[in-house]
């Protein structure tokens, strides 16, 4: 464990005694995500650290829980990184937003919401960033299934016929069979990992 991490840990424990935390490797896990804003604000203002620069927000999927990792640096003291992490349930994940403390969280939290579906509460404008409104699912979660782009589904057939496109019969029967079986055209065979 880094000396800086242990120092941050002791400072946090003395400064905010009701915040439960423990260290994982070189990072600090806040047991309760609700404490995140307080801890971040404390670290930003504490004269010993002055972590005024939030570098990166990463969301990650660990199957049992989702995680949000924060890398904090100090531009004033030129030190860092201090890594904070919070863990939330996969179902209805909610993490308080860091935008009130760091503006740099703005686009990164939208990105994490887009790809992992973590709802950052208090974010001023939480919308999908890369994908469009109406996209279903969160594509970087480990259970996301991609569509099979070579098989037309019933919605596609309807759309094509509405726009006056001739659809060959084989696609229609294929789509009808899929619809009758109540399936979506998903990628069936997992790909071999390539080198």
């Amino acid at each position: 464990m880094d000396t800086q991490i242990s120092e941050v840990k002791t400072q946090l424990e003395t400064g905010l005694p009701d915040v439960k935390l423990r260290t994982i490797g070189n990072s600090i896990l806040l047991e309760n995500p609700e404490d995140l804003v307080r801890a971040a604000f404390f670290l930003k203002e504490a004269p010993a650290f002055r972590l005024d620069y939030l570098s990166s927000i990463t969301a990650a999927d660990y199957l049992d829980y989702l995680e949000s990792v924060y890398h904090l640096y100090s531009m004033e003291k030129k030190t860092g990184p201090i890594v904070l992490r919070v863990r939330v349930k996969r179902e209805a994940p909610r993490v308080p937003s860091l935008v009130p403390v760091y503006r740099s969280a703005d686009l990164q939290e939208r990105e994490a919401y887009d790809t992992f579906g973590i709802v950052y509460e208090g974010h001023p404008d939480l919308r999908r960033l890369f994908l469009w409104e109406g996209f279903e699912g969160y594509p970087l979660r480990k259970d996301y299934r991609q569509e099979d782009t070579d098989v037309l589904e019933i919605a596609d057939i309807e759309w094509l016929e509405k726009h006056g496109v001739n659809v060959p019969e084989k696609f229609k029967t294929q789509a009808r069979e899929l619809a009758a079986a109540g399936k979506r055209a998903l990628s069936e065979k997992p790909a071999q990992p390539r080198n």
Binding site: S55, S56, T58, H71, S104
Partner: peptide, 14 residues
């Protein structure tokens, strides 16, 4: 398991 890029172009747009 997880690979993330902290892209300066994106964050500078904030």
């Amino acid at each position: 398991w997880r690979y993330h890029v902290r892209a300066p172009s994106l964050i500078n747009l904030t």
